[in-house]
Amino acid sequence: MPVAPTAAERFIQGILPENPVYRQLLGLCPTLAVTNGLKAAMTMAGAVAFVLFCANIVTSVIRHLLKPHLRIVIFTLIIATFVTITDRFLAAYMYDMSKTLGPYIPLIIVNCIIICRCEVCASRQSIVTAGADALGQAGGFGLALASIAAVREILGTGLLFGVQILPATWPNWVVMILPPGAFMTLGLLLGAVNWIELRRSERADKKRG
């Protein structure tokens, strides 16, 4: 029986080694949709972090009551409750951002990351571990969103978080804000991360053998 990872391990793994977007390829729908600008991306990352944390905690609390063939439905209902709370909160306190993010906040319900973490970690391990896992994965997700949004926003509008970064003479690459730019940016950054990972594992192999 392999030893289950500890809370600290879960946290560290979630940020880079098991990054939900770049390594596990989960949650790509919001990654592509809301990374037009860094502000929207960070709002989405915050929303996902809140939902993931709460859902993990609740799932971990009720983990002994789950029936095997009903568990996915139960996870989804728990997540739906927290997403409703998040959606109403954003509509109340950040109305413009809520309008920008539009239907992608409710789509957090079917975000594979959260269901996957509930299934893999929260339904099997203690509350502390589940919470650490949620924070780690949410951190990794935020990192991924920030990287993609930064590229798209800078190249597409010359701004970053509304602040002018590139000189005003920059001809905005409007395609970066449109769907093709989203796919291209994610594809190329994914290639970059894979390349770094390949080099790292090659160096590790060389050191070992």
Partner: peptide
């Protein structure tokens, strides 16, 4: 296809061209 782009990477790049076409 270069190794880092195999699988999901090249699919996303092809999807971007497809998205451009559908635009």
């Amino acid at each position: 296809i270069p190794k880092p782009l195999r699988g999901a990477g090249i699919t996303l790049i092809v999807a971007s061209v497809l998205a451009m076409a559908f635009m």
